[in-house]
Design a protein around this nucleic acid. Structure first.
Length: 614
RNA sequence: GCCGACGUAGCUCAGCUGGCAGAGCGAUGGUUUUGUAAACCAUUGGUCGUCGGUUCGAAUCCGACCGUCGGCUCCA
């Protein structure tokens, strides 16, 4: 049915960031208590609808235990422990029950209860999650909202009456852990959406539909870009010729750009001795995401989850002088991560990926300039790719998580200062995100939004004082003494898989000419016109334009229809009239038809597009 | 990994409470020689994800495993 991925998280998470670390503690609870979590004008209504849904659950699922139910960017959800699994039919039944509540025109009533009374009441009504929640609140009174026969712990605000709720729909259900902790109870989360009126709701549902049509997994199959094979394994994409073309073009583009920017491209192996990763700290902090050790004779090898240690070895190849710095070592490095099975998703989350990686080895004095240079590089690439909606996230460590992060508070503080200074110098706004750093250092993540509103990290800039220490990196300074360099890890287009997944959805498969797997489809009207187009075809191939000559025994209309479906940017049609006039007639995938032009003119046009990356 | 759903031809899907596995598209062979989104005829195609169980009989019921999808957790 409504197979929708969660559309909430980004804003919701951003709020968490500003509140506390990654482990949900009292601060998070305060936050959850605070009622509405977004500044959206519809927030009170959405939150109220969550209460109305909870009431319906209370009626239809006696014994349900309520956890929490906030509003989100597009609606609301409620996490509930249910006596049995919930089905699509149940959602329809719940909606019907909710409508009764709306029809009853119940007032939302706010009351302040002494903590003791609240604890007693929720204990009596067998609501252990509420009890746990209240008992951790610091205040002596707790805020309660009631409507009809439903009572909930909640700070509001709410609309005044259930009749004030607009057009709503329950969308889906899924699992969720109590307080986001995978070691705690598994609850059922029911998602819904609510809008001012039916029209707004319909518009929203249409947006969900559109996002589904753009899903890169669907388009990737339809356009034959990539595949997965059960026999190869989950999370291991196989690129088909057309998808491999897009990869190659992106890789060439970025590599050339980097070479021009003073990066040096290298090539290093996918495996290393496990000791390399013990030295780097990956083994201690990142082991869970690594494939297990391969034993070959006396050797213990691992598939690398990151490229940095290899590039560090290249740094150490010779003695480095301050004159060599900044040294920018780059590679489309293949990495392997053992993601848990449930975390895999199309090209967005895989087990084998190629990262547009680079490690900048520099002096502390060079850090700011280098970061500025990387941000400018990223912005220029985004400009070419037409990526306009993105935001910056300063990803910091979580001092309370000594397992995930290198335990060296002064180092983290120093890194944070540098990154903030760089952002200030760039006049960029950013959101702080505790608990999102790499294990070795803080980072600036550039966040993109997919059509469903999910935010995801593609580009990243990470500041690292840790690995240079672990590997005892040195350079000889002006004073002819040895100094320790700093490392900046950065990815501009990130991993090819994730960037291509993003681009497929952004363009809905209609790639700009320079990235299109097929750039021109030449369509003779009858087989007498094949030779006429063959000359143009050969000319295009010589110029490295990806041209295809459609000589099949099919009607021209069908060839056009198929080229449209494949989203080929240029369809070049020629029949008897064109042959006589010495022209071709060019159709764009928009349906627009250009005035007849000489073949040479078309060649210039398409070369111009490609050269300018349009 | 956890909660829930799903897995039928190359693709999209139908197949009710167990009784000989279907359609459209595609592919192949022919006919057609066409002016901007899909010509016509014929042929072809499946150990119903895998393994086991129940049954006279399983695509259908049960179990395990594999995979996919939606959530959660984690993340480039």
């Amino acid at each position: 049915m409504q197979a929708t991925r969660g559309w909430i998280p980004s804003r919701w998470k951003r709020r968490q960031y500003s509140a506390a670390g990654s482990k949900p503690g009292p601060n998070i609870l305060r936050l959850l208590m605070s009622g509405s979590h977004t500044n959206h004008p519809l927030a009170p209504m959405r939150h109220s609808t969550a209460h109305v849904m909870a009431q319906a659950v209370q009626h239809l699922f006696p014994g349900a235990k309520f956890a929490f139910g906030p509003d989100t960017e597009d609606g609301f959800y409620y996490d509930i422990e249910l006596p049995r699994p919930i089905s699509q039919d149940d959602l329809a039944a719940l909606e019907a029950e909710m409508r009764k509540s709306v029809a009853s025109q119940s007032q939302f009533v706010h009351e302040d209860w002494p903590k003791g009374r609240a604890l007693e009441w929720f204990r009596e009504h067998d609501q252990p999650f509420k009890v746990e929640w209240i008992s951790q609140l610091p205040d002596e009174t707790v805020s309660i909202y009631r409507h009809g026969d439903f009572t909930d712990l909640c700070a509001g605000p709410h609309v005044s009456n259930t009749a004030d709720i607009g057009a709503f729909k329950l969308l889906s259900s899924g699992g969720a852990y109590w307080r986001g902790d995978e070691k705690r109870e598994q609850l059922t989360r029911i998602y819904g959406t609510v809008w001012n009126n039916q029209q707004e709701l319909d518009d929203y549902l249409e947006r969900l539909e559109e996002a589904r049509r753009r899903d890169h997994r669907r388009i990737g199959k339809d356009l034959q870009l990539f595949m997965f094979a059960d026999e190869v394994g989950p999370g291991m994409p196989l690129w088909l010729p057309k998808g491999a073309t897009i990869r190659r073009e992106l890789e060439r583009y970025v590599t050339d750009l980097e070479l021009r920017q003073g990066y040096q491209h290298v090539s290093t192996p996918d495996v290393a001795k496990v000791d390399l990763y013990k030295t780097s700290g990956h083994w201690a902090h990142y082991k869970d995401a690594m494939f297990p050790v391969m034993k070959a004779g006396d050797e213990e090898l691992v598939l690398r989850p990151m490229n940095c240690p290899h590039h560090i070895q290249i740094y150490k190849f010779t003695q480095r002088s301050y004159r060599d710095l900044p040294l920018r070592i780059a590679e489309f490095g293949t990495m392997w991560r053992y993601e848990k099975s449930g975390e895999l998703s199309g090209l967005s989350r895989v087990r084998r990926m190629d990262l547009n990686d680079a490690h900048i080895f520099c002096t502390p004095e060079q850090i700011l300039d280098e970061i500025v240079g990387v941000v400018q590089l990223i912005e220029s690439v985004y400009d070419v790719l037409g990526i306009t909606e993105h935001w910056y996230r300063l990803s910091l460590w979580d001092p309370s998580d000594r397992e995930k992060y290198v335990d060296n508070p002064p180092m983290w503080e120093m890194g944070e200062r540098y990154l903030k200074e760089a952002m200030a110098r760039l006049h960029l706004e950013y959101v702080e995100a505790p608990g999102e750093a790499a294990f070795y250092g803080p980072k600036i993540d550039i966040q993109l939004r997919d059509p469903l509103g999910h935010s995801e990290t593609i580009s990243t800039i990470q500041l690292d004082f840790h690995l240079p220490n672990q590997f005892q990196l040195e350079y000889v300074g002006e004073d002819s003494k040895e100094h320790r360099p700093v490392m900046i890890h950065r990815g501009v287009i990130g991993t090819l898989v994730r960037m291509i997944a993003f681009l497929i959805e952004k363009y809905a498969g209609a790639f700009p000419v320079w990235l299109s797997p097929v750039q021109a489809r030449l369509i003779p009207i009858t087989d007498r016109n094949v030779d006429y187009l063959r000359g143009l075809h050969e000319r295009l191939l010589d110029l490295q334009v990806r041209s295809e000559l459609d000589q099949r025994n099919e009607k021209m209309q069908r060839k056009i229809a198929e080229a449209q479906t494949e989203k080929v940017p240029y369809m070049v049609v020629a029949g008897g009239r064109d042959e006589e006039a010495g022209t071709v007639s060019v159709r764009l995938r928009s349906g627009e038809q250009l005035p007849p032009m000489a073949p040479a003119e078309f060649v210039n046009r398409i070369l111009d597009d490609i050269r300018n990356r349009r």
